[in-house]
Design a binder for these strands. Structure first.
Lengths: 215, 215
DNA sequence: TAGATTGTTAATCGATTAACAATC
DNA sequence: TAGATTGTTAATCGATTAACAATC
């Protein structure tokens, strides 16, 4: 086990993209230096938390009084998150959600390049969307193996998710971003990141009923 | 302050929809009783965690040896999350993502009823999608006030998100589900739930580079 | 210098996991 | 009865926040 990198808490990793988005917008404005308290104030976060988060990924660190060099900090975060080295991905399920993700330009800045879509609908197979070809699910294994694709995004209906997942595993996919509301069963070496819309909805729903209670 | 309800941890609230989805699938299979260890095993969670989570929302509790009555447990979770009382919502931004959410049938089971879409694109205004009318953003305030809408979903491009948010606040919206990668500024009484696609992506990206490191 | 900001150590808080008695 | 499961109390773990010395 290497001690090459201090362990950064998962919660910190989750906040880093927020910082990045904010810092990029500041860079657009021509800002040169940025301090943790400034970021904290703008994003409504605790000052110490931001200070620690930034310190954990910044290689050169900040300077008392002036803070961080914005440009360097941005590069450090991008490097830490692996956004500097864009990875190819496929999307399986070219419905509304799949298309939404295929059209999302922002992914490139986050190290993700969606290169193709897959679907079972024969009306879609062979067509293009957003300049990306749409293939049949049957072609997935060959496609992924030949291009060495490691990331798969699942945007199919819940009923088909496990089946698609199994094909992805056979195709050599190592990381799956799952938008279906299904607990996928995968071998130990496969990473599944569940995108949990219903969890957010639960929090929202709960906080509204709480509001009502406090009348 | 009422002591009517024990406080349930936020993390528990987030897991409840997962339990619910799983339990509903079990109900379909005709299962009558379900135990915490069974759920834990199936969803790859810690047994004690599930036991505590279920205990925190179940009104009648479970029985040693047999576990919970599936049907009752489902109703307890739905009641706790407020899913028994469906709330109307609007979606602003009828692009791919907005349409994906407008077509998502699952929301009704989670207490959410999307009744209309709003957009600035004059080609869309006046049309229908999934049986839901699409209005101009200018009509939002009148619409929401007259129908007493309390929930707004933002699926517009990042640049427009704050502007849309401001309109929603003026329209009397109390809870905002925000899919834009922007930190929205809102009055204290407004609840914002950010749907953070880039946070998930960061975790995914990080875990892949970690894999690579361990070669 | 004075003061804002950094980095780091210590204290607090919340959530997870372990341990165990009670029970059907 | 024996044993699986419950509910609950205690121990552990991880993340947030507070405190503070170092520094530009």
């Amino acid at each position: 086990m290497e001690k090459s990198e201090k362990t950064v808490p998962k919660q910190t990793v989750k906040r880093l993209p927020n910082y990045l988005t904010y810092l990029l917008s500041k860079a657009d404005e021509g800002v040169i230096n940025i301090s943790a308290p400034m970021v904290a104030k703008e994003l409504n976060l605790n000052e110490v938390q931001v200070r620690k988060d930034l310190a954990s990924v910044s290689e050169s660190g900040g300077k008392p009084r002036t803070g961080y060099l914005l440009h360097t900090l941005i590069m450090d975060i991008e490097k830490y998150l692996g956004y500097d080295n864009v990875k190819d991905a496929i999307i399986v399920g070219v419905g509304h959600l799949g298309r939404a993700l295929m059209s999302f330009k922002g992914f490139k800045n986050h190290g993700l390049n969606v290169i193709a879509g897959f679907d079972t609908n024969s009306n879609l197979i062979g067509t293009e969307f957003q300049g990306k070809k749409i293939f049949s699910n049957d072609q997935m294994i060959e496609f992924c193996k030949s291009l060495n694709i490691r990331i798969g995004i699942i945007t199919v209906p819940d009923e088909c998710a496990q089946e698609v997942c199994d094909i992805m595993v056979r195709a050599g996919i190592l990381a799956i971003w799952n938008f279906a509301q299904v607990h996928l069963k995968v071998p130990d070496n496969i990473i599944v990141q569940n995108e949990n819309l219903t969890a957010s909805l639960a929090i929202l729903s709960k906080s509204i009923s709480k509001e009502k209670t406090n009348l």
